[in-house]
Write a protein that binds this DNA or RNA. Structure first.
Lengths: 202, 202
DNA sequence: ATGATTATACCGACCAGTGGGTATGCTGTC
DNA sequence: GACAGCATACCCACTGGTCGGTATAATCAT
């Protein structure tokens, strides 16, 4: 049942299992033993690495942040010179990421946020940092695209950056509701069109 | 503690309490006794009206559907004649609904979908029907707006309708993450601008 | 080197609180 | 007196967390 080679250390296997299972079932519904089973580790080992389920969740957000941070930092779209084109390529990249089963491409931070925003403020704060930090990586390009287009904008780059994340999060929910990845892709296509229209001359 | 007058019958009070608490804490984390306490009703009464927590959830989705269905059906924006203007007024209306605490304006169906999409297919199916049915109420106007604008569209009215819902769902998540309603409003403002750009001549 | 000491990783039986669900009985109304 | 509506007491499966213990490996004194 283990989905990972044994060379990876238990702690990391537990974190990866957490990302997977929580995205599939939600945080509260995920039992510690589910995670242990997926990671191929015993409960004793779990509590050796994490004091509590909550501490695990916090560590998992950090893990998620590191994983996705790496993924986007090393992605191809950064090679493109033109800022608008680079932004559009980022969106295309997000669309291409919609592969495999839903729990594989869905956002861990978004999922946790939904469930925890009233009950676990520290956890939500961590998710918020992760999401907004990611959004912030787009701001420079948006700013440059505004500059380039010459259009005077009555909206900020930051607000557009956050909007891209909102669309992506919403796309995930629709995909879950309908069980259809294509619907998420459609929404991201609309997002792309919006960006194009926003920066097209006149 | 009761938030509702006693004249409303227990069953309805339980359903309303469910909408409230589930939107705040998520489905799994919501205990039946939480709902009973909020509704001012005992557990015995609860199980008189609902066979199980799952049955409650199903009934709550139906209740949600009825409530929101009524809210939108009787909303002002239908009075507007021009289809594009009516569509934009709908979006404005959605933005105006962002009042009060987060659990008051957040989407019950979206929340449930996130948590249940793998474990409770029937529940998700009910949510999906609710969301897509709502989206479908916009299609005619979008269709008419396409007609009117004369632009040939390489996207369908249905797809735009679903996109509006994706943006709104995503806006909720960002609002939860940041604890800031204004961010949700910003995203909906971007949605409005998208629709305007989409139908603006040339 | 070799043995003593200590830290790290791990195991799995067990405990205790929680929470979904049941059994049963009371009360008012038709 | 039958039945809807509601209350109380209770049951028990489940699950987060504990605890005593083992295996392995680094650290270090002699």
């Amino acid at each position: 049942m283990e989905h990972e080679a044994k060379q990876v250390d238990s702690r990391t296997r537990l974190l990866n299992a957490t990302l997977q299972i929580v995205r599939a079932k939600g945080y509260t519904a995920t039992r510690i033993e589910d995670i242990c089973a997926e990671a191929g580790v015993t409960k004793g080992s779990f509590f050796h690495h994490f004091k509590s389920k909550d501490e695990l969740a916090l560590a998992a957000v950090a893990h998620w942040d590191a994983l996705t941070g790496g993924l986007f930092a090393s992605a191809e779209y950064h090679r493109i010179e033109d800022p608008l084109e680079r932004l559009l390529a980022y969106i295309d990249f997000r669309r291409e990421l919609l592969q495999g089963e839903l729990p594989d491409y869905t956002c861990f931070a978004g999922m946790i946020t939904q469930e925890a925003y009233l009950t676990r403020p520290d956890l939500v704060a961590a998710c918020e940092r992760s999401i907004t930090a990611h959004a912030r990586t787009l701001e420079a390009d948006i700013e440059a695209a505004i500059e380039q287009s010459g259009n005077r904008a009555d909206w900020t780059a930051a607000s557009v950056a956050l909007h891209t994340q909102a669309v992506i999060q919403g796309a995930f929910i629709l995909a879950k509701a309908t069980g259809d990845t294509a619907i998420a892709a459609d929404s991201i296509a609309h997002l792309r069109r919006y960006i194009e229209l926003l920066f097209s001359p006149r």
